Simulated assay, not measured.
Amino acid sequence: MKIPEQRIQKQRYCPMKKDKVPFSQNIGVQSPDFEEARCFINSRIDDREVSPLSASGSAENLLTWQPLGGTTLFGAKWSEKVHIQSDAQSTFHAVMVLSGNIHCNTLNQDVAANSLLLIAPGKLADLVWEKSTRAVVISLSRQALIDHLGIPGLEFLRDTTTIVPDKHQDAQMLRNGIECLAQQHEICGGNIGLPVQKQWESLLVAQLSDQLRRPGMENPTILPGRIRLATEWILTHIREPISVCDLLRVTGASKRSLESGFRTHLNTTPAKFILCHKLKGVRKTLQSNPDISIGDAAFSYGFGHLSHFAKQYQNAFGELPSETVRQCRDAIFVLPKKARSGAK
């Protein structure tokens, strides 16, 4: 696997040992205090309760982290057997077990070493980690999923919790990807630049894409005639005011059959489909031209009330429009010396 390139200073580097927690250059917690660990986790992802189930010694919990754009990876090794619970999650979480065992109470199944657990948005995390189990927890960015998978919303993705066994190709590829990322983390002293972070984020989402998609919806472009006509008409006229009545006129379908077709084949409604693609249009405009005003970008897609638009945008992408603009302005690629000289 090719590691994304980044200019770095030469420094000593040792491959990750089998018993080491990845991303050790960025240590969040290294102590036996479970409350400290809980606070660290909850400051970065959906709230979780952390309850030790044993008390065999004074070994330290170790939690590390590596941001990848809007996605965050956490390395974890608990000093005791521990029970971790969360409320309904706002985005996908993946848990790659490196060694040891995690029991998923929701499925009443064990997640063995080198296996992958995927927890869908809206589902609970209810996990028992055996003592000294090492794992990487990935909190996937909603906006990265939407951008890289080319979907209008998370409703196109899996809505269940599932285990991918260790011998499955997707689990093996993700494990290899994490190891490569951990190596680059060590080489860079934990300081991976934002442009390279984005490349890694895209790579991880691509590796997980088959597992993330909702079963039976692998190719949502294969649609019945009238539903396909409606979606194509929407995309062609996405900058114009569009109503469900327009779709009824264009397709000749009844409102009931149109609504039913969208729900059956796209798992959404016509109105939500229109909104999703208008929001995606604004997002692409902001990303391609960070100097445009947010108001102008929103108005060009028919959003008249900026405060309401900003709330809808944040619900769709997990960030405000101003944050999208700021990230685009910050993500400036610096060409290596050879590339600069070759361009002259």
Rank of each mutant, 00 (worst) to 15 (best):
K123H: 08
K123C: 12
L124P: 00
L124Q: 11
A125M: 10
A125L: 14
A125E: 10
A125C: 10
D126N: 10
D126R: 04
D126I: 07
L127S: 06
W129V: 09
W129S: 08
W129D: 04
E130I: 00
E130N: 09
E130S: 13
K131L: 07
K131Y: 10
K131R: 15
S132R: 11
T133S: 07
R134Y: 03
A135D: 02
A135T: 09
A135K: 08
V136N: 04
V136F: 06
V137H: 07
V137W: 13
V137N: 05
V137A: 10
I138E: 04
I138F: 02
I138H: 02
I138G: 00
S139A: 15
S139H: 07
S139F: 04
L140N: 05
L140V: 15
S141G: 08
S141F: 03
S141Y: 10
S141M: 06
R142T: 14
Q143T: 10
Q143G: 00
Q143N: 15
Q143I: 09
Q143C: 14
A144W: 13
L145T: 02
L145C: 12
I146L: 01
I146E: 03
D147F: 10
D147C: 13
D147V: 11
D147K: 15
H148N: 13
H148M: 11
H148C: 11
H148G: 03
L149P: 04
G150I: 04
G150S: 10
G150N: 09
G150P: 07
I151H: 09
I151L: 12
I151G: 03
P152D: 05
G153C: 09
G153V: 03
G153N: 10
G153R: 09
G153F: 05
G153Q: 10
L154C: 08
L154M: 06
E155P: 00
F156E: 06
F156S: 09
F156M: 13
F156R: 11
F156T: 01
L157G: 03
L157W: 02
L157T: 01
L157Y: 02
L157K: 01
R158G: 07
R158T: 04
D159N: 15
D159Y: 09
D159M: 14
D159S: 13
T160D: 14
T160N: 12
T160V: 13
T160A: 15
T161N: 02
T161L: 00
T161P: 00
T162A: 15
I163C: 09
V164S: 08
V164H: 07
